[in-house]
Nucleic acid binder design. Structure first.
Lengths: 336, 336
DNA sequence: CCCGCATGATTAACCGGTTAAGTTCATGTT
DNA sequence: AACATGAACTTAACCGGTTAATCATGCGGG
């Protein structure tokens, strides 16, 4: 390991025959530098391979140029084939890269890690914090926000939006899906709902209920946790409770896929006997048997939007919306 | 936004009636502090809610306590239903959390971002760098390593291992899979290989070739890019070239899944007409139709291992291995 | 010819820690 | 009693930048 000495501002200054301050100004593109000097300094920077030390810079600017993305630990443990968080990361990452900011990933869940995140953010390691999918009424976003740290959540926080957030139109998407089933003449429309401590779970169930109520149809609810296995179990339960149900709205594609498996196991044909609609529009749904009708939610876009919001917040841009809700869209394939 | 002033060492020192140096020593757990003073200082820290400023600390210690994980940007394109990188992230993240280090995520691929990563690492923003799956003969890991920056790769780098790496036993896993097919009496065993600019693609194809050669059977190769769609296309090609093939080893589960779809489309039964084995053992493979026989590779574990290696390297631990190869295992289900 | 004023560079203070060197003081030696 | 020793604290230098305040220089105007 060589650990070659890296040149400092001082070194560049000496080489260019100017003061540290002038080099600093050149490096930061200040306009009050004569062209000739700028040229000389740039050459020196080039020759020495100078790269500014971020720690030194942060110390005085009070900015770190990096941003934390908090992922619920539970998610990564439970959802070993979850595609939601990767997509969020992708969206956020793209935006961060465009803004030349660094992305720091943190998992949280345990009280210990929870505390760790708080200390980390408070210590000024990052200029802002994003939360990907808040579970329950997590107080952390509010706490950080109150401490003056810019925060944006993906998913409307439960218990009053005390922080800006980006979410998708769960309700509208579900309503479109359920209406689609109603219009196809389905009468016994069940749902496999998501966890009721997450807004995505709550809102999608609400959309189902409201739309069925409007249509004057009875509701039939089983609860899952967004995973395929929970979808299988929920579908079996639903069938046991109502052998004649003719449609199911599953609050996630994974659960819809599980339902598909359970229906096949029970000898039901899809969509002939039972129609099924999912929510997410993951790649996999194009290839399921049959291909899944589903509500597309723009996950990557929501990551990007969250990142853009946070950057704007950090830059102190005025008139930022507290909430942004992205549209969802019903994608009709063969399952309904 | 409040942006409450955060207390500094100085403030704590004043409150505790000692010098900055003493507080620093207490905070860093130096043994040369009297118990009484330590107590007083800790109380002051508590009361003021003091959290050390990492930038200031890094400036003098030359350590940032954070580590970069580089993901190939191309991956993020494939990412849309890729489960490999999320698993790597999970493994690395767990280990980083345990070591109380921060994880900085960077995507690279374009020459521009490539340069960005280099500058970032060289600027001392991170104490070390991990590469998740190196494409082709990427010079970046070697470059950074030569500059004295601790580097570990996931996947043996092509073109001579100039950097320590962690990989899985592709060859052994594939050999077991192909032997399984041979022992089942399959005679026309094709493969859908992965991209040949990645070690995972190369080694798996080599394993296939060597094992078939040993068995005295002819080879039959189509190339994919690890995605489901490429699996579909490759399978169609293989069938067109040899309508009588009776087995396929696909170098990824996604491609195996694609192959399954293409075989169904062609009216072939699995495993009766054609046996199929994948590689990865993603969750999805337990639920495919039929459930997929596959080679399990410990992705999360490989992320953890890579992280542990890097931390050891950073700590200057002696006698570290240049390469660690984790075992793979054939998981027999219904497809072969 | 001298003054005032831009313009552009320099000086020096500061960001918030760490740590080597120096100081103080109680204790042990002879 | 004089002095070496060592424990525990303080002083002060330093890490590598940024930036407000200051200063030098050249130029147009009176």
């Amino acid at each position: 390991m060589v650990t070659r000495e890296r040149p400092t501002l001082e070194a560049v200054a000496r080489r260019a025959g100017v003061s540290r301050a002038t080099v600093s100004r050149v490096v930061n593109g200040s306009p009050t530098v004569a062209a000739a000097i700028r040229e000389t300094v740039n050459r020196a920077v080039e020759e020495l391979g100078y790269v500014p030390n971020q720690a030194a810079r942060s110390l005085v600017t009070q900015r770190t140029e990096s941003i934390a993305l908090i992922l619920p630990e539970t998610a990564s443990r439970v959802f070993s084939d979850d595609l939601f968080f990767p997509a969020i990361i992708r969206g956020v990452g793209a935006e961060m890269e465009a803004a030349d900011k660094q992305l720091v990933l943190m998992m949280t869940g345990s009280a210990k890690s929870h505390d760790r995140v708080e200390r980390y953010a408070v210590a000024g390691h990052v200029d802002g914090v994003m939360f990907a999918s808040v579970h329950g009424a997590d107080p952390l976003p509010g706490t950080l926000s109150r401490l003056g740290i810019p925060v944006v959540c993906s998913g409307r926080p439960i218990g009053g939006p005390t922080v800006p957030y980006v979410d998708v139109d769960h309700f509208g998407g579900v309503a479109a899906a359920v209406r689609h089933l109603v219009q196809a003449g389905r009468k016994r429309i069940a749902t496999i709902a998501g966890p009721q401590d997450m807004v995505a779970g709550i809102d999608r169930l609400a959309g189902y209920r409201a739309t069925l109520a409007t249509a004057g149809l009875p509701e039939h609810v089983a609860i899952g946790d967004f995973t395929r296995e929970s979808g299988i179990i929920a579908m079996r339960t639903l069938l046991a409770e109502d052998a004649k149900l003719d449609a199911v709205f599953a609050a996630s594609d994974m659960m819809a896929h599980g339902a598909l498996l359970a229906l096949k196991e029970a000898g039901r044909r899809v969509p002939a006997d039972v129609a099924i609609i999912g929510f997410d529009d993951f790649e996999i749904s194009r290839f399921s048997e049959p291909p899944l009708t589903t509500v597309r939610q723009p996950i990557v876009e929501s990551g990007r939007t969250m990142a853009r919001q946070l950057l704007a917040l950090i830059n102190g841009e005025p008139g930022l919306p507290d909430a942004i809700v992205l549209p969802t869209e019903l994608i009709v394939r063969d399952s309904a």
